[in-house]
């Protein structure tokens, strides 16, 4: 499974020490402070962000810079959040999105 790059010939020691806990589809995962949701998922071996509405096909990161929206997920009850450009926050609840998603009422 893809891993974090902690020691890099050009970037040096890239270890991120401070961690943030988020939940993905009910499962707790450890992410690093300041990183994007999609990066945290990748580091934890998750690369499917959503399923399309008609054919129910999986989609993952494609552009990685917020242009293509393939990585959209439901975050804290809000659907269509571009996970490649949204940083993690403590206690964040991330869910795989099905179709265009649906806003959940009781969340912020």
């Amino acid at each position: 499974m893809p891993d974090r790059v902690n020691d890099h010939p050009i970037l040096g020691d890239t270890t991120r020490k401070e961690t943030v806990n988020i939940t993905v589809d009910g499962q707790k995962i450890e992410s690093k402070k300041g990183e994007m949701i999609a990066a945290a998922l990748f580091a934890n071996g998750i690369r499917i962000n959503r399923y399309t509405i008609k054919r129910e096909e999986p989609r993952g990161i494609f552009c990685g810079i917020g242009q293509c929206t393939d990585c959209a997920m439901t975050v804290n009850g809000k659907p269509n959040v571009r996970t490649c450009v949204t940083p993690v926050e403590e206690g964040m609840v991330v869910k795989t999105q099905y179709g265009v998603g649906e806003r959940e009422k009781n969340d912020d």
Partner: peptide, 12 residues
């Protein structure tokens, strides 16, 4: 996207 992952987010 791969370059962003590796060099910015430090995730392979």
């Amino acid at each position: 996207a791969a370059q962003t992952m590796a060099n910015i987010h430090n995730v392979l």
